[in-house]
Design a protein around this nucleic acid. Sequence first.
DNA 1: TGTTATAAGTGGGTAGTCCAGTTAAAAGGA
DNA 2: TCCTTTTAACTGGACTACCCACTTATAACA
Lengths: 236, 236
Amino acid sequence: MGLYPVKNTRLYEVVVNRIEDMIKTEKLKPGDKLPSERDMMELYNVSRSVIREAFRVLESKGVVKSRPGGGRYLATTTDHPMEMVSLYNIEYGTISDFIEARELIEADVARLACIRAERKDINRLKSIVNDLIYRDNLKLKEYREKDKDLEFHIALAEATHNFMLKEIMTIQIQFAKNLNIKNYINEKEWLGLCEDHMDILRAVEDKNIDKAQALIKKHIESLKSIILSEDISSRN
Amino acid sequence: MGLYPVKNTRLYEVVVNRIEDMIKTEKLKPGDKLPSERDMMELYNVSRSVIREAFRVLESKGVVKSRPGGGRYLATTTDHPMEMVSLYNIEYGTISDFIEARELIEADVARLACIRAERKDINRLKSIVNDLIYRDNLKLKEYREKDKDLEFHIALAEATHNFMLKEIMTIQIQFAKNLNIKNYINEKEWLGLCEDHMDILRAVEDKNIDKAQALIKKHIESLKSIILSEDISSRN
DNA sequence: TGTTATAAGTGGGTAGTCCAGTTAAAAGGA
DNA sequence: TCCTTTTAACTGGACTACCCACTTATAACA
């Protein structure tokens, strides 16, 4: 018997996801009044307590504000930037801010990774890169769906042996996933970005700081120009 | 009547705080089994649903794992680094990692702030600095208690007009608060750090990038040496 | 028309129940 | 005595029904 059969999804999680989806698809907008608990329990066919649990976690994230007697309202973007912005699709500047931040931080990460990466870090990076490079089309499609390429960046941050940097990177990557940035990238471009990882890895392995930084910078520049220069509607 | 009387603390929040406090004070350690819902409702004198709501938010934060039929367990540090590490007091390297990350990021923040800060950003920074500089002892003590000095750094990040950088800074500052870093700093040292802010502000106002970066770096170096060099037990 | 009662609605919280899975203790067999 | 099996207690997941204080919109009144 498995020691970790913990994967049972709870009902409240389903409700949370549904609500967050409605925010993502802009069926709910900042400041909007949400349906009452009583209405929601009918809508989702769950008990009131499940609805309340769902709202507790949204509340603690700062996504929703509850006014006793007065209903619940979707927070505004200024109430809690991170959680909110990541739910709303692409406002002006959002992505360019994201990329700018990554450019700055990842350069530092690359430098520290060159200095501090150990054998096991390098091996982990290698296995991630190989997973993506030598794969048939079917697997590749699956990996792309799962944003498996982004793991490289987290592993790189891990190689700095600084938990804070890893945490910051994780947050950024999570943000990229929520934003569905891959929708802006076609298959060929995506493969190109994956191949960049190999070069970066080599530079880190050689402890060539300048090269690693240059490559990371180029990598993110590519990402930037792919996302920002092209017309979204003409893709995918 | 106020439009925002939202400050009613909810019971579940109290429970969440109590549990997090127990983690901070190491009455609860990673992997520990928590009391059952039934026991907890007696302990805190609230209904079972309040306990469950509290656990839902801890669960969604990754601090607690629930096993239906098997009880609840405190997560380990690896399960969700940020949330966990910030609850446990000072492990080896935690603080130095934190400071290293801040050093890197804040240098970039200072640079961008110099370039992009507008009048209103400068004014906000000024009001924060003034609040701390020209104050009687009583007020100062209160401000220190509330970590009011740290607002400067968030406002500085805000001056970059990059929401992601502000978010990252906010996370770091929140982390510093949770860690109670001020306990390692005596009053004189704290005042010194506050005064640094004034100089940094001036450099930003003058758009003197090199100076701003140098000052921020010095500021964080001071912080570092205060915290890491001294014997904790001999202070405060 | 403008104010004031009034009723409906809302989130906050409690209590009690049922269920399926886990866990540990008691019973049984070797 | 030791190991297996059965049983009973416990645990989290979920539901239902109820009460409260506060908000809000409606209706009654001046």
